[in-house]
Structures are given as C-alpha cells and as structure tokens.
C-alpha cells in the first residue's frame, strides 16, 4: 500500500507538476528548431509519450515499474541507459556505507544516551547533550569537508576520498578489507557526528521516563548495583521508544548518505543523486528517489519486527 502511494507520488511529481523536461535537453531558445522537416521538440514529446493522456501514462508507468523498468536516463553517460541498470550496481556500495555508519552511530548513541540519562542534570549529561546537539546542527557536507581538510589534507592521516587504494587489486583479501575500512573511516565519523543525537537524546529522554517507575525503586531496594539496575531493569524498557524513533532516523540516513558519498567520492546512490541533480536528469532522479524511499519503508518494516521481538507484550498479543 505504502509502496503504491510512493510510486504514485513519484509519478505525480515528475509527470504532473509544471516544468517541461524537454526544455532540459534542448538548448535554450531552440524550442522551434526543426530538423529534417520535423520539429525536434515535438519528436521528443512523442518519443517520451508526453502527448498521451495522463491516465494512459499512469497505467504505462506502473506496467513498466512492475517489470523493473524505471525508464531511461536522459543524460547519464550520453543518455539512453536504463535507469534500473545505472542504479543497481551502486546500491551495494551505499548499503555498505549506511550499514557501517548506522552500526557505529547506534552503538555510540546508546552508550552516550545511557550515561546522560542515568546522570541527568549532572555536568557529564549537559556536556554530552550539548555536544551531540551541536553535531546534529552541523550540515554533513560541511563536517565531511572540514574533516577531509584537517585529517587528510593538513595532517595527511586518512585518505581524502574513494573506497580503496589505487593498487588495491594487488592486495590479499584481508588487507583489502582493512584498506576499505580505512577509507570508510572518515565518512563513518562524519555520519556519527551528525546523527548520534538521534539515539543518545531519545534514549536519554526515555530513560528519564523509566527511572522514576516503581520497579526501579524495587530494584534499588533489592540491593542491585547501579550497573545491574540499568542493564536488567531500566534498559529493556527504555530502548523501545528508541526503536520507534528510528523510523524518522531512516529518512535522515538517506540524506546523510547522499551528501557524504558525493564529498568523499564514494560511487553509490548518493553520488548518483548529485550528478542527476546537476544535469536535471529527471528519470534518474525519480528512480533514485523511488529506491531510497523503498529502502526506508523496508528498514521501517524491519524495525517493527525488531520491536515485536524486544517487547514481550507485543510478542504475546
């Protein structure tokens, strides 16, 4: 259902909103250029089926979509490439980046959130909250470029861009993996800085809701150590709202990945978005948008399943 809505919205944006895709391809002021007796523009319109009534185009769009046909690119590598074919090989690169980055962000966010939730109002909580909030307010394009400038340019510790060294094909498998991790370090750090607040702040707030509960008092009265109180009694309850909040986080992952991939020159979907935006390649842009939104929907479905696993009340029901 959601998938259908997304696809429809995608169709609506590209096909129905004002704005003429033929204008992008033809040079400015050439709308009436004729070539071999036929109007070039009219020819394009016919070729793309833009003269068909909207209902016909809508049906055609879905018929194509179900066959995995996302249309052809206008400009990418001189045009004519199927969009799906351009997107597919880049998907895995993006998934690796997003996977690594999300794991790191989640881990650090949960650690920081636990500390600041437990010590609410103390100096350590204030400094964690402020630092994560500042990181959250920084645009990722700026963070990544400043990191490259300081840690790859002024102090050349890390490689400035790419996913592997130029002579990576000569490495043995283990070295190659390490080499890739080394290249992914700065992108992941950027991601952690700009997104860790999602997890640390939600966990902090949900811990604050949990700690005054009666069962926490009981746990303390039983003589459990602070560590045990936290791990066995507070966390299982406090982490549920974090999972709910992650629904919004996934929408941000996509945005973060797009920027980071472009800046670090990682050949994934994000870089594709940047290129497609620059040259106004609408079929490609809408294809990327569709895939990204589908990714978010799938991620949300996984989060829902995880919720069921973690919350016995839902599991039983």
């Amino acid at each position: 259902m959601t998938v259908y809505l997304i696809a429809s919205l995608n169709f609506f944006i590209v096909q129905v909103l004002p704005g003429d895709p033929t204008r992008v391809l033809l040079p400015r002021g050439s709308s009436n250029v004729t070539q071999g007796g036929s109007d070039l523009r009219a020819q394009l319109i016919r070729q793309w089926g833009l003269d068909q009534p909207i209902t016909t185009r809508y049906v055609l769009y879905f018929a194509n979509l179900l066959q995995g046909n996302l249309g052809t690119t206008i400009t990418y590598q001189k045009g004519g490439f199927p969009v799906a074919g351009v997107i597919a090989p880049r998907l895995s690169t993006t998934l690796v980046l997003v996977g690594l980055a999300t794991a790191a962000t989640m881990w650090l966010g949960l650690v920081l959130g636990r500390i600041s939730g437990w010590r609410r109002g103390r100096p350590i909580d204030v400094s964690i909250t402020m630092t994560t909030l500042i990181g959250y307010s920084m645009p990722s394009f700026w963070v990544s470029l400043m990191l490259i400038y300081t840690l790859a340019f002024v102090l050349p510790i890390f490689p400035p861009f790419g996913v592997q060294s130029r002579n990576a094909s000569t490495f043995d498998p283990l070295t190659r993996v390490l080499d890739q991790l080394y290249h992914y370090f700065l992108p992941v750090v950027t991601f952690v800085i700009t997104n860790v607040a999602w997890f640390s702040l939600t966990l902090r707030n949900s811990l604050t809701d949990t700690l005054p509960e009666d069962y926490m008092l009981t746990a303390m009265a039983k003589g459990l150590t602070e560590r045990e109180q936290l791990r066995k009694h507070a966390m299982p309850n406090a982490r549920l709202p974090v999972l709910t909040a992650s629904a919004l986080y996934f929408g941000w992952v996509v945005s973060g990945a797009i920027v980071i991939e472009e800046v670090f020159n990682i050949p994934g979907l994000g870089q594709l978005t940047w290129d497609a935006t620059r040259v106004r390649d609408f079929p490609l842009l809408s294809g990327v948008f569709l895939v990204a939104t589908l990714g978010v929907v799938v991620a949300n479905a996984i989060a829902d399943l995880l919720y069921m696993y973690l919350d016995p009340r839902v599991r039983e029901a």
């Binding site: 959601t2 809505l5 997304i6 919205l9 944006i13 590209v14 629904a247 919004l248 996934f250 929408g251 941000w252 992952v253 996509v254 945005s255 797009i258 920027v259 978005t273 935006t277 609408f282 842009l285 809408s286 990327v288 948008f289 990204a292 939104t293 978010v296 929907v297 949300n300």
Partner: peptide
Amino acid sequence: FFLVIPWLPFVLI
C-alpha cells in the same frame, strides 16, 4: 506517509 519520505531527495526532486 510524508513523515517517512527521505527529505533530501524529495526536496531536490
């Protein structure tokens, strides 16, 4: 529906 859409590609498009 609008809440889960990744905002950057949406705004760009």
